[in-house]
Design a binder for these strands. Structure first.
Lengths: 354, 354
DNA sequence: TTGAAAGCGCTAACAT
DNA sequence: ATGTTAGCGCTTTCAA
């Protein structure tokens, strides 16, 4: 009895239409669509011709509803514009397409509320994996909610993937693809220390963000390995932005801080650091050595070219998809990809022995 | 009688489960889901509690199938990694979320075959708009196929959106959001010409790509407006990459070409140009002035900061979504956004009067 | 090899 | 304000 008024646009052809046109049943049409079931050559040809003539395409929603799984992978990031995230996105999209999946994109603009809302949305979409990229807030309530989502996703046959973010706990069903933030920071700080630097600033520590907490740790440990303790005055809090890097450096200089090296929390931050240094007529690396973290493409084009920690962004994204999609056969659902220091022109020995 | 074997994972709760738990009918559940229909406060509360307890989320596919439209917008680009495309993607994603739509992401890696395949996929997904970003191949066969897809999408109630790419023709149902490539190239070339440059190279012309064809046109017209004709030897073909920019410039120098200005086809190309120039000990802008096109964020951080044409990338993406989604009420389905020259440090008067 | 029919989870008439 | 029911377009038994 029911039936809404017909759509105002011409309706799209359905299996029914194709079946009618080809003079077969809809099951037969479905069979040639699936391709796995035997159908007589001539029948198949007839059906395919009907499809072509009617300009038919299957309705992915109907298919998802009737079939078992959707074929989508959801990607959630702060901002596509950041070179870090864009590179991860590229890897995700690539691997998704290799695995025959579509990629759903959502951005959160760093809002943890929205992050959780988006996961909910993805659950509605029946995505077979929800990949969350970038550092997480170190807040108990947020962790808890994330954990709940991990379970919820698991229950609905989906999977939470933490990409570039630490695990939530041993019993939480989630795939984790990390890179070693702490070692990277340790290595790059050691690079500076070994060159003779003793007063090194760490610029761009973001409050409560796992990423910076880990980098700060590596920074500190490297100092201790050299029998030093970092000067708290040289640890500057800010954001992962160019502007923040610029301003933090300005402030540092204005405060008369003594330093011969700067570890920027990210390459983007380093960009601002270099700018501030140039304005202050401090030469890099003669007066101050500068390093970044990420190895984004443009690190190479900065003047001087930036010494930094290479993070395998694309690999991170690819691995995330691969592990999640094959989680039934892939035993290890937690990997840590390696990073390495890339030495370029922004570092050298300190000017004065100290 | 039928029924496939139960899924191996615990099933997700459905409206039926919620209805049972709350002691109401599934319609009532559907009503509180939709939120538009009156439901008694107490009933609603009971249903919502049941949902929470069962950890229920609607199945977007079932919804799409039963309801009228899906709520997705598809975005297709070459490569998320390019700053140009990333910025457009940001605009698209943002506006999609404003309009309550999800964003499907697909990359084509410049493969026109894949581009067409992806459009087909999007049609299956019932996306209410398919946004294609970036220049198109100037090939009759490709144009034809695109036109066919525009019609096919239109027939299924969806919409093709060409973003940063010229229209396919007057009768093709597609939304077009362009920016003026030719004027931009005209303006930036004029900037150089007015400063006194007479021998200007155009570096990075991609064969058969609408974008470069238009930029070359603007470049040529600006010359003519100054009573000049561009020297064909100074028009160098290549790709939109850093490496290509680097190599083209090397070649130009090696060939002993005389020039005091370089128009790079894009900012990325300009990056390579600057690098090659630096290697050849040519100062910018004292010996050679360099300009780019796009105004990507890092144009500001190059040394010297790059004079370029600002393209409103994000706006491009937002407008694309807005026009497509509201195509029933938005009369104009073809807009051209403005660009403007941003003068920075990479340009100046030529060294020698000539 | 093909057809008939049930049902995926939901919405929207049509009844109360 | 709430329940009943018929599909949305497809896949998948089951029967022939």
């Amino acid at each position: 009895m029911p039936r809404r008024s017909p759509p105002d646009r011409a309706a799209q052809a359905t299996v029914k239409d194709v079946a009618a046109k080809a003079g077969v049943s809809i099951s037969t049409v479905s069979r040639v669509l699936g391709g796995t079931y035997p159908v007589a050559r001539s029948t198949r040809a007839r059906v395919q011709r009907a499809m072509r003539e009617l300009d038919f395409v299957v309705n992915a929603h109907a298919r998802a509803l009737a079939g078992t799984r959707t074929q989508t992978v959801a990607l959630m990031l702060d901002d596509v514009t950041g070179p870090f995230h864009a590179a991860v996105a590229k890897g995700v999209e690539h691997q998704a397409s290799v695995e025959g999946r579509l990629c759903l994109l959502c951005t959160t603009h760093g809002d943890p509320e929205r992050e959780l809302a988006v996961i909910e949305l993805m659950r509605e979409q029946q995505a077979d994996a929800v990949i969350v990229v970038g550092g997480a807030l170190e807040e108990a309530s947020h962790r808890e909610r994330m954990t709940r989502f991990a379970h919820a996703l698991d229950r609905s046959g989906s999977r939470l993937v933490l990409c570039g973010r630490p695990p939530l706990g041993p019993d939480v069903p989630a795939t984790v693809v990390e890179y070693d933030n702490q070692s990277g920071a340790y290595a790059i700080t050691s690079h500076l220390l070994s060159a003779g630097h003793r007063r090194i600033a760490l610029v761009g520590v973001v409050e409560n963000l796992t990423t910076t907490t880990q980098r700060l740790q590596g920074f500190t440990e490297a100092h201790r390995a050299h029998g030093l303790e970092p000067d708290p005055d040289l640890v500057v809090h800010g954001q992962f932005t160019r502007t923040s890097g610029y301003e933090m450096t300005k402030k540092l200089i204005a405060a008369g801080a003594r330093f011969t090296g700067i570890v920027a929390a990210t390459d983007i931050v380093a960009t601002g650091v270099l700018h501030a240094l140039r304005e202050a007529n401090l030469r890099v690396p003669e007066d101050v050595s500068v390093v970044g973290y990420d190895d984004i493409p443009q690190a190479f084009d900065l003047v001087p070219a930036l010494t930094t920690v290479h993070v395998p962004h694309e690999e991170l994204g690819k691995t995330a998809v691969r592990l999640a999609v094959h989680r039934d056969t892939e035993p290890t659902q937690h990997v840590t990809l390696g990073t390495h220091v890339v030495v370029r022109q922004s570092t050298g020995p300190p000017r004065t022995a100290q």
